[in-house]
Write a protein that binds this DNA or RNA. Sequence first.
DNA 1: ATTTCCTATTTGTCTGACAAATGTTACTTT
DNA 2: AAAGTAACATTTGTCAGACAAATAGGAAAT
Lengths: 261, 261
Amino acid sequence: MSIQYQGLVTHGLASQIADKIKQAILDGALKVDERLPTEEELAQRFAVSRPTIREALKRLAAQHLIRSRRGPTGGTFVNQPTQAETRLMMANATALLVSMGELSLGDIAETRQEIESLCCRLAATRRTDAQLAVMAEEIKRQRDPTLSDQDFCASDVRFHCTLIASAHNPALELAAAGVIESLQPAVNLMIFRFRDRAQVANQHDTLYQALVARDAQGAMSALTHYMDVLTTQYQAAQEASETPKKPRKIKPVTAQAPRHE
Amino acid sequence: MSIQYQGLVTHGLASQIADKIKQAILDGALKVDERLPTEEELAQRFAVSRPTIREALKRLAAQHLIRSRRGPTGGTFVNQPTQAETRLMMANATALLVSMGELSLGDIAETRQEIESLCCRLAATRRTDAQLAVMAEEIKRQRDPTLSDQDFCASDVRFHCTLIASAHNPALELAAAGVIESLQPAVNLMIFRFRDRAQVANQHDTLYQALVARDAQGAMSALTHYMDVLTTQYQAAQEASETPKKPRKIKPVTAQAPRHE
DNA sequence: ATTTCCTATTTGTCTGACAAATGTTACTTT
DNA sequence: AAAGTAACATTTGTCAGACAAATAGGAAAT
């Protein structure tokens, strides 16, 4: 006798209301930038109190589905989700999984290599001159000995993001966001420990030259070498750190989500 | 003169408190399944009222970072993020971007093909017999003429999820989740319109046979054909629908996130 | 010893109110 | 008459207090 319990109030009023509004947005009943009723009106319409409505709205705000403003022309509006926001969300979620030990850095490294590799293949034919210029600029910067370690790491991130952007596929950028960002703390750790900047810059240069020549194979090969060095150095760093008990002490620095509501 | 506004009250008390708690979780100050203070205690500690604390907690609950239970042994606990949950979040976020027109189905199709293709390569060496058995089972089911359209689509999803799982890389599964799920409604549309089941099942079979033989190239080639047919049929379906004004009327059906708090 | 009931604790929801922000409107001044 | 300014109305943000619902532990009765 399998009884259906799903219709009951298993999840709290606020949750149910949040779901209803979310569904309305997804179904298109509420369009982007459309203002939904005031909290009082919503409370009356759902036959609950204003705090309950507010909790529902806060849940949606946490997912960046709505934004709120005070004042006569204020209210709650449907938010247009941007790719940048979604990327950040995915990066945060992935970083959380890593810090909880649900994802191994090895798996992430492999995924990053595979995805960046196919980005190389696509970028070899699709890259624009402007993107090549950005890469060249970053390589030049990475060879500046006066650059701080922190700025060097930032430059490394920008280089790889430009590589992925050169594939000209937003969906691919989205899929790659998580693995790029959540591997970066480990990359930073290595660079801080060994300061092997010249090697990194040279491999970036090799990759860049291959893209200039539209040489997909060359670019993929350069990337493979880059990732190999990274993996090797990371393992060395881990062994050298002499704390094998806590292999994932790397703390994600990428939180800092831009707030706007 | 770039002035730092970050220290001011630009974002509301609840937001700030939510961020503080989130940071505490990410920093490891709050461990998984650890119970944090009661709402009253938190209210006192942050010097705000209980509703404000509640709003902050709701924001975190919306991100599945915490769960709450009533009762003496109840309270608010740090949630262990699971890969399945994170996958669902990413799939929802991607579906939202698609429904808002921020991501084209073409881009997603390309990304899905590329990622599934490399899954084929990895799966050719890593697939287990159990996973092969699941695939064979799904193919067999897909050839059952009494299967409903809905069940057929579900079987298609399961087949591709098994393919990705056969790569044995959780990070890759995560990256693929968004593009798989958000393309599925379009796939469903095609299957519903043309009922071209036999062709789909045969291509699945070809892919399956290649994986049995550990033939990476064969698997990738089969997948390419599958995606080509899909793309062609989708374009045909779109032209046949005679409503070129609204090219993205496909509604994501994948919401239905499991609730548990 | 087991079952049942009571109770304490904690979150969920409600009511009511005030504070802060912000666009509008009316008024005053030049 | 035009422009600046002040008051106002509207809406979200926050607060205070209270009760309801759920739940686990203990007490009491069989």
